[in-house]
Write a protein that binds this DNA or RNA. Structure first.
Lengths: 141, 141
DNA sequence: CTATTTATATCGTAACGCGATATAAGTCAA
DNA sequence: TTGACTTATATCGCGTTACGATATAAATAG
């Protein structure tokens, strides 16, 4: 009986299949964003803003954290979004240091369509992903 | 009752949370690879080779497809892996045009450790991911 | 023998985020 | 009020990666 640290061929295949599925999803997402006329990163940002827990505007720092970016990389991303009129900046009322970023009408529209498509896609691949996650969990434990 | 195309705040939050979880996993993976002394892309390649269904050596074209890369981008990636003695090239016996790429001992070792860590991490986050996938599927349908 | 497939090679390009560093403005606590 | 900290902005060059375009070589297949 193999020790739990030792991975067999099946485990490698499962891990690889999981990453393969993720890459395909990400590729789908990138192509959908490009087709919608925005970059994948911009799409990610719109979703992170609109989908922020309990709010629909976020500070620059919050966005950076949600996107796993450095602060000043987020600033640059927001600059590009503002230039495309997809989001707006507004100073926070409660803390003058903070800037709140929210979607414009254009941003909302773009995100709506993309999100519907993503939800459809995810529903398609969810069974496979769940299956792979389950496989990773239960063998050789 | 909202139409299935219309997404509510909750759906955006779920989509965003899913992407956030993915980004965190990917970041974990990147840091693990760097800590192991290889680039994230090299790690992906090692896994794709060792985890290829039914085999543990793959052609350049197969690797490109599994990594969702262009053919000649895969060639470059393999060049770097060979330079680091993580994989070897060998001509295919059955088709002289093809080149089979397989892991060296060093490659095996690096991948083993990384894969064990990844499996642990995935087991941790699997419940959350599954939950999010389920949420995406069942509401407003 | 010709057309196709597979891999390799080279070139420049483009995107993206990073580290380093600096500035400005607001907050907060002593 | 002063001084330390936080937050956002700005600028610089760098490094990594993958890409398109294009060409070549070798092997296969019809």
């Amino acid at each position: 009986m193999a020790r739990s640290q030792q991975l067999g061929k099946a485990q490698y295949e499962t891990l690889a299949a999981f990453r393969y599925a993720l890459r395909q999803f990400i590729r789908f997402s990138e192509e959908a964003a490009q087709a919608a006329g925005i970059t994948p990163q911009q799409h990610q940002a719109l979703l992170a803003i609109k989908g922020f827990p309990g709010r629909d505007r976020v500070t620059v720092g919050e966005l950076a954290e949600r996107l796993q970016l450095r602060h000043h990389s987020a600033v640059g991303l927001i600059d590009r979004l503002v230039a495309q009129k997809l989001v707006t900046r507004a100073p926070s009322a409660t803390d003058g240091r903070q800037v709140l970023v929210g979607l414009t009408g254009r941003g909302e529209t773009a995100l709506e369509r993309l999100s519907a498509a993503h939800r459809r896609q995810l529903k398609q691949i969810a069974p496979e992903l769940s299956q792979l996650l389950k496989q990773l969990g239960c063998v050789n434990e």
